[in-house]
Design a binder for these strands. Structure first.
Lengths: 118, 118
DNA sequence: AAGATATATAGATGGATATAAATATATTGT
DNA sequence: ACAATATATTTATATCCATCTATATATCTT
């Protein structure tokens, strides 16, 4: 999974409302259309539509148009991929950390004088 | 894991810079102090300090003060707990979805006329 | 105690974004 | 074709937040 999608998913999941919407979609299978979701939350239809777009752009949700309705379905595999990527990135780091427990090589820094960054 | 921490972690991970900082902390074991992190990124010290606070508040990082320094360590268990909670919430939903594949109970909605929500 | 260094906090600012109202687009039914 | 319904988009607004500068606090060194 590329960094771009990784971050888009992270951001999509970070908003509580949007995550709840995703949860509801996942719970409902492919049975929820936009209007049904609007009924579940105290927000305007435009807001739900916006969140659905974010979720879709992140790849977490896919759309099945059916007449004038658009039914949403959670792409659980994509969430799984995200979790795996998260585990991979942080997991590698954490593993490396527990390995490097050996010598006392404290990195104490002084640079401030040099003014390195702009 | 309570919803509060769940969302705080999600938000902490959602900012790319902050996630990178977490990665670096995890990679370094408990060897990184604030100044060392500042050296790794083109942002001001105050910004790093802010991100460290967010990560700490989310429980993803813990502090070991040592003299004038404060060394940061990644709490990988907490990240693991978050991942498990994410899997639990979405996983349950996704599982339920694949189970409920049975009858054609489309929820098509009409409510608009009633003007239910505020 | 005084200066230097490390980190945190306060305040300000620009940019992102969640939300809403209004409008546009598409589809269905008559 | 027209009215009604469903969803998306546009535009505006208010809030949040990443970032900065400046300052405060704490610790170390001499």
């Amino acid at each position: 999974m590329d960094t771009n999608q990784f971050q888009r998913i992270a951001k999509a999941l970070a908003d509580p409302r949007r995550f709840e919407i995703f949860e509801q979609i996942a719970l409902a299978g492919d049975d929820l259309c936009c209007g049904a979701i609007v009924d579940l939350f105290p927000v305007a239809q435009a807001t739900v539509s916006h969140h659905l777009k974010e979720l879709t752009d992140a790849g977490l949700v896919e759309i099945r148009p059916e007449g004038q309705f658009r039914y949403f379905r959670a792409r659980c595999e994509v969430l799984t991929q995200y979790i795996e990527e998260l585990q991979r990135r942080a997991g590698i780091a954490c593993k490396a950390a527990s390995k490097a427990k050996a010598p006392g090589k404290r990195r104490s820094v002084s640079k401030q004088a040099a003014g390195g960054r702009s």
